[in-house]
Amino acid sequence: MNTQVVYFSNSGHNKRLAENIARHYGTSAVPIIPVEDYPMNYSELTAQAKHERFHHVEVPIQPLSLDPKADVLILVSPIWYADLPRSVVSFLKQLKHAYARVIFTSDKFMVGFGTCGQTLRRYLSSPTVINKVAANSMNFSRVTAILDN
């Protein structure tokens, strides 16, 4: 099993989670970086995220260097307005690699895991197994339990 960890984080919570998971598997965490930074002001950020989500805005991201041998993708991201942030959707749309399994995790269990799963299914190849689990940077045992057993 070759594991790739990719994350999007605006505040740093999901970055810490992704880095801890990557360290567990002896790999690095690859960030999804939008071409334009998101605002740090919470009100401005949520307004922009809401607009992007409900208007299906394409958010350009910087190119990522992914492991072509990876068969498992651990995708770490916040949930914005009950779905994946549009920068993560941009990443999914650009994927040229099929993974046997994708584990989606977020640093908080929130409304939207179901919708996130639907979005993942829309952009991943049909045989891909998708798991959705809540975790945080101090306890991601539910993520590792899927792969380590």
Rank of each mutant, 00 (worst) to 15 (best):
V72M: 01
A29Q: 10
T3G: 01
Y99P: 06
T128Q: 06
N149Y: 04
P63I: 12
T46I: 14
S87I: 05
I74K: 07
Q4G: 06
R101S: 11
S28C: 01
V89P: 10
A49C: 13
P60I: 08
S90K: 10
S87V: 12
L124G: 02
T3F: 00
V35D: 06
K50F: 09
V133K: 11
S87P: 11
V133N: 00
S11W: 04
V102H: 04
F91E: 07
G114F: 11
K50R: 14
T3A: 07
M1P: 06
N41I: 04
N10S: 13
S106W: 10
E19H: 11
M138T: 12
N20K: 14
W80P: 08
I74G: 01
T115P: 01
H56W: 09
S77P: 12
S87K: 01
S65Q: 14
K93Y: 04
S9A: 08
T105Y: 09
V76M: 07
L95W: 02
S77N: 11
A135P: 09
K132M: 14
V59D: 05
C116E: 07
R23I: 00
V30C: 09
M110A: 14
F54D: 13
M138A: 10
P39G: 09
N14L: 09
P60E: 13
S11H: 10
S90R: 13
F109E: 15
V72H: 02
E44N: 13
T115N: 15
Q4A: 09
E44T: 08
Y123S: 01
G12I: 13
A135C: 07
M40A: 11
F113S: 10
Q118N: 14
S77F: 10
K96P: 00
F8N: 12
K15E: 15
K96A: 07
V88A: 06
P78G: 11
M1N: 07
P63A: 12
W80L: 10
P78S: 13
V143F: 04
P39N: 06
Q48F: 03
T144G: 05
T27S: 05
H56L: 15
K69G: 12
V30F: 03
N20Y: 04
I79N: 06
V5R: 05
L120C: 02
S126P: 06
A145D: 14
D107G: 15
V88K: 03
A98F: 00
G114I: 09
K96Y: 00
L73A: 02
D37F: 00
L124C: 01
A29T: 06
E52Q: 15
Y7T: 10
R101G: 01
N10M: 08
R142T: 11
T105G: 11
P34E: 05
P127I: 04
H13D: 12
A82I: 01
L73D: 01
N20C: 08
F113V: 07
L84P: 09
S9H: 09
R142F: 03
G26V: 00
K132A: 08
S125H: 07
Q4M: 04
N131K: 11
S125R: 11
E44Q: 15
S28M: 05
I21C: 03
G114C: 02
Q62V: 00
L120T: 05
Y81D: 07
T115F: 02
T119E: 08
V5G: 08
H13A: 13
A82Q: 14
F8I: 07
E36R: 12
R122P: 01
V30W: 03
Y123D: 03
Y123M: 03
G112E: 06
H56G: 09
H55E: 15
R23N: 10
K93I: 01
G12M: 11
M138L: 11
C116P: 04
A49I: 02
